[in-house]
């Protein structure tokens, strides 16, 4: 197989070009969001949030068919219901926020699976859950472009607020920052990106495109800005390699991208010169001492 066959030929197909572009666009924005998820310890919450989108998407499909914007708003409503619902539950009852979130998202997810299995269409549950690059249409691509550009622009404009809110929310508030607004905006962006990534990555795997590059970058970087940039770079790189692997190996695109990013994570965990596991083992301690 020539280099041309390996790297370029796959993209003579329209659907491959679309899939690649969609993954690259969302890698750019997801790589940014992932950093905040990792640093604010919201990784598991993000995972739960992504599962909870399913019923919204299913209901939208039921009512409006394949309209991208309908799917988008369906997912958005379901995601926000889960986020706000669990916040409300934890305020009104003794149930803590993590348990409230865990309970709500699993009910939502179950509802979504039930709805989709009863839908009178040919759509495949597996495509919803794990992504299908064949399904990326022109409107999906436009959505991905808009969401990605919006996310990157907001990160550029509000970089300092995001850094303060992530590192030291109390200080952010003390100096007149709108912490609640930044947090809500961040959750909304996460849901938007998850919905936009649904076609290529699938609901269950979409978060991998955000989280894995960020946590890998976390192991290499000592500055927030370099972590953001490396994370975006890894997400884009992983998307390109993942899409190619999925073409040649006949794998689901979402799974293939997640596995490529997983490989990058494994390398980072093992070989990061300052924070890697091998260094920890060599020094005979799990972490560098505080002093």
């Amino acid at each position: 197989m020539s280099v041309h066959d390996l790297l370029l030929a796959p993209f003579s197909y329209e659907f491959m070009r679309r899939g690649l572009l969609s993954a690259v666009l969302l890698g750019a924005s997801g790589g940014l969001l992932g950093c905040v998820l990792v640093l604010r310890r919201l990784a598991l919450m993000g995972d739960a949030l992504s599962h909870s989108l399913l019923p919204g998407v299913a209901v939208a499909w039921l009512l409006f068919g394949t309209s991208t914007s309908a799917l988008f708003f369906g997912g958005l409503v379901a995601g926000l219901l889960t986020a706000l619902g669990s916040a409300l539950l934890s305020r009104l009852t003794r149930v803590k926020e993590d348990a409230a979130f865990g309970s709500l998202f699993i009910v939502f997810f179950g509802m979504g699976v039930a709805l989709i299995s009863k839908l009178p269409t040919r759509i495949n549950l597996a495509d919803f859950l794990f992504g299908n690059v064949l399904g990326v249409g022109a409107s999906d691509l436009r959505l991905a472009g808009a969401v990605s550009a919006g996310t990157v622009a907001l990160f550029a404009i509000f970089y300092r607020s995001i850094l303060l809110e992530t590192f030291d929310p109390v200080f952010h508030r003390a100096t007149g920052g709108r912490g609640g607004l930044v947090h809500l905006g961040f959750l909304t962006l996460t849901v938007l990106n998850l919905v936009a990534a649904m076609q290529t990555m699938g609901i269950v795997l979409a978060l991998g495109l955000f989280l894995l590059p960020a946590v890998s970058a976390y192991l290499w970087c000592d500055r927030f800005i370099s972590m953001l940039l490396l994370s975006v770079g890894l997400a884009i790189g992983g998307s390109v390699v993942g899409i190619l692997v999925s073409f040649h190996a006949g794998l689901a695109s979402g799974a293939s991208i997640v596995l490529c990013l997983g490989a990058a994570f494994l390398v980072s965990v093992l070989f990061s010169p300052r924070y890697g596991a091998l260094r920890g083992l060599r020094l005979g301690s799990a972490r560098p001492p505080a002093a």
Binding site: L39, L163, L164, T166, F167, D168, V170, F171, Y218, C221, D222, R223, F224, S226, M227, A290
Partner: peptide, 16 residues
């Protein structure tokens, strides 16, 4: 209350 593992340098904190 501080996450000491945050990817930030001394100068980065003071600049805040």
């Amino acid at each position: 209350a501080v996450d000491w593992d945050f990817p930030i340098t001394v100068r980065g904190v003071v600049e805040q």
